[in-house]
Write a protein that binds this DNA or RNA. Structure first.
Length: 763
DNA sequence: AGTGCAACTTAGCACCGGCGCG
DNA sequence: CGCGCCGGTGCTAAGTTGCACT
């Protein structure tokens, strides 16, 4: 059922997005911040999205149908979500009252200090138990080992242990040095010998920790901080109410954040402006505060112009200047961009601290425009091993804490002030620690493959259960499986944009059509999911599911939870019982990978040439992206670039007919002359025609590919959902260079798969 | 059971640099 | 040899999950 893509089209066409996100990089002088005062009254903004139009009263029609004896039989549980419901309703009322949204404090100074004494070497109180595990840390106790064995065994043994120890001396991480794959040795036998010292570390051939620890040794240089604020030159002025006003450096910095965004639409949005203005005032001197009382009277234009000029100037820099900067960046990278973890030099993903700026959440975010404060050394927690050379805080400052917790993978963390969440500096996807986890993820998905039939039968049975909560669980699971929906945690209102996943679907997000376009029992989904990306889909479902949905919706308001007896924790607990390590997201991984494999089988045509095969690959990839609803805004230049391509195709066509004509005439010529020379001419013309035909085809394929990709993003699924061994195996099977499928970074991330998968790999 | 936190994965977009084209 | 385009990369927001605590 899940690999089925019958519903794909709708998704693609109808998908549309509501989010315009973006970022900012800036600086700002920090200040004291308020405490997170949660539980502030929150008011969710009336949903501005398309959803509202879907609150269709007709839903009520279904209410009286099929009253079930079952319903609420376990009266005990109405609670799960009631609380939220209440809130939402309350808020609705409030907003109806025309009240203005109450603001929340910006601050979040609250340290959440872990009072871990920095002295225990392997602290981490929480994970005491994993010690028993033989193989890997978390779940999947058995699988990992097994997998490893099955997958590796053969080759693993032979080249075990060759490197590792001083691997970090070799910079293995930088170059995706061709890893020899099984047969790979072929690749460059002799060269290999030379490059041997650069041989990449094959962590996947080594033992893993079995005690829950993530490393034994960890050394790094700490984070790179955002550059300090540089005040504007005095000729760049700020005007309030038409009059020049010199701002204090603190206030000025925050003003520049706004100035830099002037061109963006969201500086016109009420919430954004309100949040910004409020936080800005906190940075002002009392004098400034009393003068500047209306954002509308602020004129940031000179600042804005100044920054535009700056960026022009940057573009116009000479080669030498640019080179210098590049070199400096490279030095920074070499110094801060790597760490040493267990004898290997590994690349760090994000070693720069996020610069201050104005927060812009995605979608309709209640906190957009708030000030993201500058992070200082005293906000930073450093994690490294006790026996390593500890990173030095910048002169005159100190770290908030240095700890030595080898049960976690992060090197640096700090608490961010917008949501109060923790941010981390961690390793690159090419690192052992990320790679192992990634591998493990696919192994879990493969285990699901083995028992998915059983699970599906089970939830189909559960549709008939007498217990409401079981039915809900079963229907939700069906959606997660069939439609690859996300789990859908509940979220705190007023803290984030109003988005949902499976368990948090509300009545207003689906419509039931007993009959639609010739199909029976159609469910129409329309909601905003992660990142406020719209999910729109019409799916025919089984009658029993349909009836259940009618039941679930009975006597509910549009903004009531569809699955009121279910949440992600209940669901995952259940899944855990069905299979060790099973959680909702495993279904996404499983269905994505399974679909890729099956689509590749179906679409790849042995007779076609490489570009055509790659098109097939992309189509298979696309099927997955559609399943997972990975959309993107059509590139701004889409139309134009499509036209360009079309022009090229036309030109190529002309060229082809010219070439054909020439071929013809040279043939005629050869017939008359019958000499060697003219024969040769014919041959070369023939070749020319062939070459052009090939080029033309390539262009046409490219055009198709691009057109089909207009609103679909392939990257996310490729990077996060598709077992790379499937792709590698496909490449090997059809003699396609992996470079055509994976770029350099991707090859680094998937080095393990490239090395270990054979052409007969089966997901 | 419910809540909140910590850790880690997944996500789309802006921007930039290198490359192919005229 | 400059210019536009495109892919790759960096950035950081927004999810999921597990667990401790109450």
């Amino acid at each position: 059922m899940s690999g089925d893509l019958s519903h794909s089209e709708d998704q693609v066409d109808c998908g549309s997005r509501y989010n315009d996100s973006h970022k900012h990089k800036d600086k700002y002088k920090d200040k004291e911040h308020k405490h997170k005062d949660h539980k502030k009254d929150k008011e969710r903004e009336k949903s501005k999205h398309g959803n509202s139009e879907h609150r269709d009263p007709s839903d009520k029609k279904h209410r009286d149908k099929e009253k079930e004896k079952v319903k609420h039989k376990d009266g005990s549980t109405d609670k799960y979500k009631d609380k939220h419901k209440e809130k939402r309703k309350e808020e609705k009322m409030k907003s109806l009252d025309g009240k203005i949204k109450k603001e929340k404090e910006n601050g979040f100074a609250s340290p959440h200090v872990k009072s871990e004494p920095e002295d225990n070497f392997y602290p981490s109180p929480k994970h005491e138990k994993p010690l028993k595990r033989k193989r890997d840390d978390d779940n999947d106790a058995e699988f990992k080992p097994k997998k490893i064995k099955t997958e590796n065994d053969k080759k693993a043994k032979k080249r075990k242990l060759d490197e590792s120890f001083f691997g970090f001396l070799s910079f293995e991480n930088i170059k995706p040095k061709k890893t020899k794959n099984k047969k790979g040795e072929v690749a460059d036998g002799k060269k290999k010998a030379k490059k041997e010292p650069e041989e990449k570390w094959k962590w996947w051939e080594e033992e893993r920790y079995t005690d829950g620890s993530k490393w034994r040794f960890l050394e790094h240089k700490g984070p790179v901080f955002a550059p300090p604020y540089e005040p504007l030159p005095s000729n760049v002025k700020f005007y309030y109410d038409g009059k020049h006003m010199k701002l204090s450096p603190e206030a000025e910095e925050v003003a520049t954040f706004f100035a830099k965004m002037l061109d963006h639409e969201y500086t016109t949005k009420d919430i954004f402006r309100k949040n910004f203005f409020k936080d800005w005032k906190k940075e002002m001197t009392s004098e400034e505060k009393s003068k500047i009382t209306d954002l509308k009277k602020c004129d940031f234009n000179e600042m804005s112009e100044y920054f535009k000029a700056q960026s022009e100037a940057r573009k116009a820099m000479t080669k030498e200047e640019k080179l210098k900067i590049k070199e400096q960046n490279e030095r920074t990278l070499q110094e801060y961009g790597f760490c040493i973890m267990d004898n290997h030099r590994e690349r760090i993903a994000n070693f720069r601290i996020e610069p201050p700026g104005l927060f812009r959440g995605r979608g309709d975010h209640p906190k957009m425009g708030m000030l993201k404060r500058r992070i200082r050394p005293q906000d930073i927690i450093v994690n490294c091993s006790k026996d390593s050379k500890h990173p030095e805080p910048p002169p005159g400052s100190r770290w908030k804490e240095v700890r030595h917790d080898n049960k976690v993978t992060w090197l640096v963390s700090w608490t961010e002030n917008i949501q109060g969440s923790i941010k981390y500096i961690m390793l690159n996807p090419s690192s052992r620690i990320k790679g192992e986890k990634d591998w493990q993820k696919y192994e879990t998905a493969r285990r699901l493959k083995k028992c998915v039939d059983r699970i599906r039968n089970q939830y189909r049975e559960d549709w008939k259960s007498k217990e409401m909560r079981i039915r809900q669980r079963a229907v939700a699971l069906y959606f997660i499986d069939k439609l690859a929906l996300r789990a859908g945690n509940e979220k705190e209102e007023g803290e984030t944009a109003d988005t949902v996943g499976c368990c948090s679907l509300r009545v207003e997000h689906i419509k039931l059509h007993p009959e639609n376009e010739g199909q029976e029992y159609v469910v129409e989904f329309d909601f905003l999911g992660k990142d406020s990306i719209r999910y729109y889909n019409k799916v025919p479902v089984e009658k029993r599911v349909f009836k259940n949905l009618q039941l679930f919706m009975e006597n509910k308001e549009p903004d009531d939870d569809l699955f009121d007896r279910l949440n992600t924790s209940v669901l995952n607990k259940h899944l855990q019982e069905l299979m060790d390590g099973l959680t909702a997201k495993v279904f996404r991984t499983y269905n994505a990978s399974f679909t890729l494999q099956q689509q590749l089988k179906e679409l790849t045509n042995a007779d076609e040439n490489i570009p055509a095969k790659i098109l097939s690959y992309n189509r298979a990839n696309r099927a997955v992206a559609i399943l997972c609803n990975h959309q993107r805004a059509p590139p701004k230049t889409f139309e134009k670039s499509m036209q360009n391509l079309q022009a090229k195709i036309d030109a190529k066509r002309d060229q082809l007919s010219d070439a054909k004509r020439e071929l013809k005439s040279s043939k005629a010529d050869a017939k008359v002359r019958r000499d060697e020379k003219s024969k040769k001419a014919v041959e070369s013309k023939k070749k020319a025609v062939q070459r052009i035909e090939e080029q033309l085809m390539k262009l046409e394929v490219q055009a198709t590919d691009r057109e089909e990709n207009k609103q679909i993003a392939l990257g996310t699924s490729k990077l996060n959902y598709l077992d790379p061994r499937i792709s590698v195996a496909w490449c090997k099977k059809w003699g396609i260079p992996v470079e055509k499928i994976y770029n350099k970074t991707q090859r680094e991330k998937f080095a393990w798969a490239i090395d270990m998968a054979d052409d007969d790999y089966e997901f």
